[in-house]
């Protein structure tokens, strides 16, 4: 028994622009849950396809009732594998994303291809499904599936917004569907991030300065 989700949409940018933005989409104002991002394998195949494995760390948020029932599934962060193949010849880009913390699998697939009618646009197909093994996982799955898919949908909406934000930045223009309100909101988020970074930096400086200070008094 598996729950499946599928959606299709167009991004009003060329395929080249979208796949370039894909690698640069973090951080963005919609990716607060993404903590780290690393390439852990990358090669160009003899057929001239780029294959990449990335490791992402994201915050793990379960509903409170699930945390109580499944404390063993509790961890502060979750590790995600993101495998992908870019084929510049056929202009296709396929990526699979799944968590490796425990056996419960929430798999997300994204496919980017050229829009067959308007080559200037990119067609995005998104799929997700949950699979499980063992009776314990099954119960977990039954209880978590609605939450998982609801979160998936909201995360996917955020992922698309994040990608469009990155695209707009790379192209140095405002995205077509962005409103003034969005822009203002993003500016506020960015200011918050800058402030946070400054606080962290100040903290680090203070820590670094602390031993020197004490040595003055010795």
């Amino acid at each position: 028994m598996v729950k499946h989700f599928f959606s299709e949409t167009d991004i009003k940018s060329s395929w080249d622009q979208v796949v370039s933005a894909f690698w640069q989409r973090y951080p963005n104002p919609f990716s607060k849950h993404v903590l780290t991002e690393d390439v852990i394998h990358r090669e160009v195949t003899p057929e001239n396809k780029l294959i990449t494995r990335r490791l992402l760390t994201k915050t793990n948020r379960l509903p409170r009732w699930a945390e109580k029932i499944f404390p063993s599934n509790l961890s502060r962060s979750v590790f995600i594998i993101e495998d992908s193949i870019v084929d510049p010849k056929s202009k296709t880009f396929t990526t699979f994303t799944w968590n490796i913390n425990h056996r419960r699998l929430m798999v997300r697939k994204m496919f980017f291809g050229m829009n067959s009618e308007t080559h200037a646009w990119t067609r995005v197909q998104r799929e997700a499904w949950i699979s499980f093994c063992g009776i314990r996982d099954y119960f977990f799955f039954v209880m978590i599936q609605e939450f998982g898919l609801a979160r998936f949908k909201s995360n996917q909406a955020k992922a698309m917004k994040g990608l469009e934000y990155t695209l707009a930045n790379l192209q140095g223009i405002e995205g077509p569907s962005r409103t003034l309100k969005d822009t203002a909101k993003e500016a506020t988020e960015k200011a918050k991030e800058t402030a946070l970074a400054a606080t962290e930096k100040a903290k680090n400086l203070a820590t670094a300065a602390a031993p020197q200070k004490s040595s003055h008094f010795v």
Partner: peptide, 23 residues
């Protein structure tokens, strides 16, 4: 990755592609 014990070893490339359910 080694220091933090992140279990990335032996994971097949595009692994879940093979488990994809019929929809």
């Amino acid at each position: 990755i080694k220091d933090k014990d992140i279990p990335v070893d032996g994971i097949e490339f595009m692994g879940p592609n093979k488990e994809k359910p019929e929809s």
